[in-house]
Each structure stands twice: as structure tokens, then as C-alpha cells.
Write a protein that binds this DNA or RNA. Sequence first.
DNA 1: TGTAGCATGTAAGCCGTTACATGATTGA
DNA 2: TCAATCATGTAACGGCTTACATGCTACA
Lengths: 190, 190
Amino acid sequence: MSQDTALPITSYALLGLLSLRSEASGYELKQLADRTLRFFWISPAMSQVYSECNRLTDRGLAAAREVPGPGRRSTRVFRLTPAGRAELERWLDEEEPDFPILKHPAALRLFLGHVAGPARIRAVLDGYVEQLSGRIEELARIRAGIGDDPHLMYPGLVAEWGQRYYRGEIDAVRAIAQRLREPKSSGGGS
Amino acid sequence: MSQDTALPITSYALLGLLSLRSEASGYELKQLADRTLRFFWISPAMSQVYSECNRLTDRGLAAAREVPGPGRRSTRVFRLTPAGRAELERWLDEEEPDFPILKHPAALRLFLGHVAGPARIRAVLDGYVEQLSGRIEELARIRAGIGDDPHLMYPGLVAEWGQRYYRGEIDAVRAIAQRLREPKSSGGGS
DNA sequence: TGTAGCATGTAAGCCGTTACATGATTGA
DNA sequence: TCAATCATGTAACGGCTTACATGCTACA
């Protein structure tokens, strides 16, 4: 319950994951993040999951319970406290979302096409489409795993958004690749 | 020319900006970044621009020239050295681009819709569409400023990609908002 | 007179990652 | 017995931001 400085958004993301579970260990939270947060936020490293969990516990937003394991080492499982749920609700209600941050290595390459040359740019774009296809499959599997469960309606919507997003990227990349092949086309010009 | 550890990608982005100019001051680089890098990478803070420029100069990838100002304080202008150009080319040629990193506050809110409630989610999505419209206008102005200059063909392509990207986001958000209004398979019922 | 823009930096600090250390269990 | 997975952490460090400090010019 120390400090009243603002939490980083990733803390709220973790709080949000806890809101989907009655209890979860750090390890489980990391696994869950890999199937969810990873696609639209970050999936924090294990070490960060643990330190965030400690911060949340320090502030009384989460509570830890020691579960003795089969060996000598035990597992700490966390759950959302009423204060944690209230703080998450407050944040969702009051804080205005920033514009997304995008770090797009392929676009950076395209931007530097005058140095890289068109052949390399084409290769980069092709590789990106490849990566996107893989992502779409991953998301499709995750979406299928969610099913119709009304409890998971919003995660399902996000998964659908993600697939649409990636498909849009593929279309956009193809359009750029097309413009690279025939630099004269497209509206407005000449 | 100290150190041979890998440079962060932002250094290459700065190197790339320098490749578009014969010379530029830190201040000019920041302004240029605000019109370019900002949309697909980051626009580094002024303080970071200066420290990156120093790093590039230390490594011999950029060269600084002191230009006396009207007052006592002078301006340092940087230019790409042959070694800098070679290193940028090597990076573009050899380094494989990572998948983009997206930190999407609106998607995070949607993901937590079960806590935020549908009314708040609708407001968040509306606000996001608003932001997107603003971004599209910004990019349109920038695209118009680039014009037909073949020297700036690739930045032009990136600006077009950006506009398409944002329009795609608007479509996707509208689709999600639609699914929120009519939960579709409402027949089943618990 | 004061504020906005041009211009250059230093210092402090947080977020997040990688590397490292440790220990238990399962199965090949 | 070796590797993989489960499981929990600490330490070090880098990237990037914010806050702060400074000085000059133009202009309202």
C-alpha cells in the first residue's frame, strides 16, 4: 500500500489479466499474456511479471497466497483485491487512452528505400507478409480456443480485430509492392 | 570510433534521416523526425537526438561541424560520413526486420470490456476514430508536401501506407462497434 | 515585458530486456 | 543422465522520457 504515484499501463494490463482469473501464479500470468497482451500491448518478461506482481501486492491491489509445491519450493498465487478491482475500474473509466505506439521495422526499411534499393525492399515486404500470415494463424488458433464463452466475449472481439488488422496490413503491403513495380499508377498524380 | 556493440535501431533511423540531407542540426533532425519517423517508429526526444548524434559522431558514422550563430552560441550541424553510409547500407542489407511492436491502449480497453462496460468501450472506440481522423489529415498534409519529387519517392510511399493503415483501423473499429451493438449469436442465451 | 521559437545540452529516473542463479519434476 | 518444463527470483543495463538549465532573437 506504499506510494501513490501513477502505475505504468502494463500494471493495469496485469491487473486486467488477474480480473479474468480467480487466482494465478506469475508463471500462469506470463502464459496468459503470451496469448493475449502480446498482440496489442507487450508480453512482459518473466522477471517483469514477478516484479509487477510484487508492486501490485505492495500497493494492496493484489494479494499473494503461498501454495506449497510438491518439493521444498512453493508457488505464490495472486488474486485481485477489491481495491485492485476498484483501481482498475477507475483507470478504465477516467484515463483517456493515448494514441497507439507503433514501431514498424518494415516501414522504416521502406522509408529508407533510396539507400536499400528496390530489390531489398521487395524482399523485406515479402518477409513481412510471411510473418503476418504466421500471426494470423496464431490468432486464429487463439480465437478458436476462446469459442462462444460469453465470459470471454471481449477477448474474442480483440482476437477478431487482430486478424482483421493483420489482413489489412497484408493488403496494404501488397498495394505498396504494386506501386513499387509500376511507380506511375494510382490516383491524383500527373 | 569507440565501441563495436550493436547500435539501437533508432540510431539507424537517425542515420537514415541524415541520408536525406547534406547537413542537419539536432534541432532540424528532430523536426524532420516529427514529420516522418513519428508515424512508424518513434520521434526521439530532443535530448535523445543530441545524445544519438554524439554517439554517431563518436563512432565516426557522422561528422559534426560548428556553425557560428549570430550570438555567442553556435550550432552543430551533422552530416553522414562514408563510414556512416556504409554502415546504414550494411544494416539495411543484412539485418532482418523484427515483427512490429504495437502498444494499443484502445485495444487494451476493449480487451477489458468485461470490467469497463459496453458504454465506456463505445466511447473509447469513438475517441480512437477521432484521433485516427486527425492523424489521417496530418499525414495527408505531409504527403502533399512531399509532392512528386522522385528523390522522396519512398517517404511518399510510407505516407500513403500510413493513410491506408489508419483508414483500415477506422474500418476495423467500426466493425467492432457494430458487433458490440448486435452481439450476433444472441439466439442461444445462456 | 514577456512569451514563443530557435538551439543545446545535463541529470534523474522508469520501463522493460537479457543474463544469471536456483531448484523441482517429468520423461526420453 | 540429460534435457525440457515448471517455477521464482536478482542484477545489470539500455532506451527513452521528463525535468531542468541556459542563451539568443523576434515580436506583440
